[in-house]
């Protein structure tokens, strides 16, 4: 691509460098010595790399669009003692390794084993010095790497399995907090609650029965209705006993809103 410089004499460097002139250059081995066809990096090979990158990018964006990044519904609560911690998946094998090591020898899991393997990895070129490059002719290096990869896969798998078991155990062990608000709030249907708890006296159509007055045309706020549901009331037709509907405050509020919306 580059044009030869027209006039080499027109560029002169000031000779204050302390680096001695070295005539023979250690350029990479020309690939013309290798068998087969070479091609220029730019633009021919870069175009092919870009095509591979585009295929990759399509798959990646499909993942991104179809699976929004997870975010829990609440900010961190340091006082939450029930949360089962879980590191990101690529640290799981290290995390799982610690579980097999008794607490008194924890150094083995935090420093010694990961340290040995990190050093082996870092120093691989000096441990495996033969000029031989085929994996089948360097059995020790190949076997060790396969062993490490298999260990990482197995440990990660076990970590995920034990995390799931732990979560299930935690869910079973914690007694469902007296009416779990989030779980039941979603399933709570004020109309069903009205039919179950209120309709026998106030009527399916809210228009009242001989036992209790109509709930149509009430001039009450939501809070007042919640108060009546909770504490009962002495009314014109007799006494409404307290606690006819048992539920959380949120559910009482939803029931009251449902009643007031049917005027």
């Amino acid at each position: 691509m580059a044009g030869e410089r027209q006039d080499k004499a027109s560029v002169k460097y000031v000779g204050d460098s302390r680096i001695p002139v070295r005539r023979e250059k250690r350029l990479p081995k020309p690939y013309s010595e290798y068998p087969g066809k070479t091609e220029p990096f730019f633009p021919n090979f870069l175009l092919k790399e870009w095509m591979a990158a585009v295929v990759f990018l399509v798959g990646f964006m499909a993942l991104v669009i179809s699976h929004p990044a997870p975010l829990e519904p609440h900010a961190a609560d340091p006082n939450d003692t029930t949360y089962t911690p879980m590191p990101d998946w690529y640290f799981l094998f290290l995390y799982q390794l610690l579980k097999y090591i008794p607490g008194s020898m924890i150094v083995l899991g935090t420093v010694i084993i990961p340290g040995i393997f990190s050093l082996l990895l870092l120093l691989a070129p000096w441990l495996d010095r033969s000029p031989e490059r085929r994996p089948s002719r360097r059995p020790v290096a190949t076997a060790l790497m396969l062993f490490v990869v298999a260990s990482i896969v197995v440990l990660t798998y076990q970590a995920v399995a034990s995390h799931k078991a732990q979560q299930a155990e935690a869910a079973a062990a914690t007694p469902p907090p007296p009416p779990p608000p989030a779980a039941e709030g979603a399933a709570f249907d004020p109309e069903q609650a009205f039919i179950a708890s209120c309709a026998s006296c106030h009527g399916q159509d809210l228009k009242g029965t001989p036992a209790a007055p109509s709930l149509v045309g009430l001039n009450l706020s939501v809070d007042e209705v919640v108060d009546i549901i909770t504490n009962g009331r002495k009314g014109s037709m007799g006494v409404m006993p307290p606690g006819m509907f048992q539920g959380t405050d949120e559910q009482k509020k939803q029931l009251a809103e449902w009643v007031l919306s049917h005027q």
Partner: peptide, 17 residues
């Protein structure tokens, strides 16, 4: 320019071959 762009890429790393 030679280092960034204008160097040959050998066949054995070229997925087109």
């Amino acid at each position: 320019w030679r280092d960034i762009a204008d160097h040959e890429v050998p066949e054995h790393v070229n997925p087109a071959h």
